[in-house]
Amino acid sequence: MNQVFDEPQRALLRTVLNRIVPARDGVPGAGDLELGPGIEQALVESPRLRRLFLDGLREVAITAQCATGSEFVDLEPRRQTEVLESVEHASPAFFSALVEHTYRAYYTVPEVQRAVGSEPRPPQPLGYQLPAFDPALLDRQRQRTPFWRRAT
């Protein structure tokens, strides 16, 4: 795989992802689910996105340092969230892309799909089943006098 990040940046991204989508009911957070490498691969294919993420992660690190004097990865989760809220406000384009790519990666993991009550399978070939439409539901509507305007 082509690489975008160095190891400290990967550790930072992993911690950030755990705050974007935290752990839930036995399912790890997005960072601990090892979604970072997939996101990094997406950045390889898009110079614009790569620049956005490199600059954005740098901003996360700097904001943490300036606000707390500590590395982002060493902060308590509550403080990490505050730092991310600050970055979201200052760099909305980066943050929007970060959240979208996190969700993209997270909600395509079968373990997550099962956890949220979704069958971990694509729509085909099985499709779904619903009962046939009951025309009696329209009985009330059928009583209504036609109300379209006539025009010739």
Binding site: I20, V99, Y103, Y107, Q113
Partner: peptide, 23 residues
Amino acid sequence: SGPLHTALGGFTLTRVPWGETHH
């Protein structure tokens, strides 16, 4: 639609918030 569509806000594009309230 599916879980990802829901997280990204569905038809109104109103995203599910990130963070502690997400789930």
